[in-house]
């Protein structure tokens, strides 16, 4: 069986690359930890999550993260596909934003806050002593040492992109969607031209 194709097929579904922290979290899935039913957000946390997702993928001439149902998708994914370390780091991230009174900030302040979070994320990622492991053909995995979860910003950004660019609204309004291409051939493209979803 051709591994490259199979993994690229998965990669296509995941949007072109396999995110290392996601794979790391996936790897933990086999090991029992907390009951995923334990994961839930408060109403305030839900509102913060929705605003953060919308900041990452705002409504423009195409739908935004909220239109595409991304906030609820993220909560569901965390509950179903992640375990305690990511549940904890995700909620920590939301709690931190709550402490900063995120919901009462204006748009400009919110963007400044998220830029701060993005900056902190870089340090957090380093601190998790990320180690590169090759898990298969063309797939790198970063293995997090210990039981600390993938940082909040990394999780929310990845899941926003994933949720949005695999949603019907996200796919069909931003790309040309061709479920049945019927042929394969090299072509020329112009920058700015609408891209065919792969």
């Amino acid at each position: 069986m051709n591994r490259r194709q199979a993994i690229s097929r998965m990669a296509i579904l995941l949007g072109g690359t396999l995110s290392a922290p996601t794979l790391s979290a996936m790897e933990r899935m086999g090991t029992p930890s907390v009951n995923s039913a334990d994961f839930s957000l408060t109403e305030t946390q839900r509102k913060i999550l929705a605003e953060v997702a919308e900041h990452i993928i705002p409504k423009t001439n195409t739908p935004g993260a909220k239109d595409a149902g991304v906030p609820a998708f993220i909560e569901m994914m965390l509950k179903d596909c992640y375990k305690a370390p990511e549940h904890n780091s995700f909620i920590t991230g939301l709690v931190n934003l709550e402490k900063k009174n995120f919901l009462n900030q204006n748009k400009t302040e919110q963007i400044a806050t998220l830029k701060e979070v993005e900056k902190e994320n870089k340090e957090l990622m380093k601190a998790y002593s990320v180690k590169q492991i090759k898990v298969g053909d063309n797939v790198d995995k970063e293995s997090m040492e210990g039981k600390v979860g993938v940082p909040f910003w990394r999780l929310v950004k990845e899941l926003t992109l994933f949720g949005y660019f695999t949603s019907e609204q996200g796919v069909t309004t931003n790309f040309t969607y061709e479920p049945i291409p019927g042929k394969f051939e090299p072509i020329k493209v112009q920058k700015g031209q609408k891209v065919t979803y792969h």
């Binding site: 690229s8 990669a11 296509i12 995941l14 949007g15 072109g16 690359t17 396999l18 995110s19 900041h55 990452i56 993928i57 705002p58 423009t60 963007i111 998220l114 993005e118 990394r154 950004k157 990845e158 992109l161 994933f162 660019f165 792969h198």
Partner: peptide, 16 residues
């Protein structure tokens, strides 16, 4: 192959 939206996870930035 060419990178698609998945590359965004590893990039800085957000917004329109």
């Amino acid at each position: 192959g060419r990178g698609s939206w998945g590359r965004g996870t590893n990039m800085d930035g957000f917004g329109a």
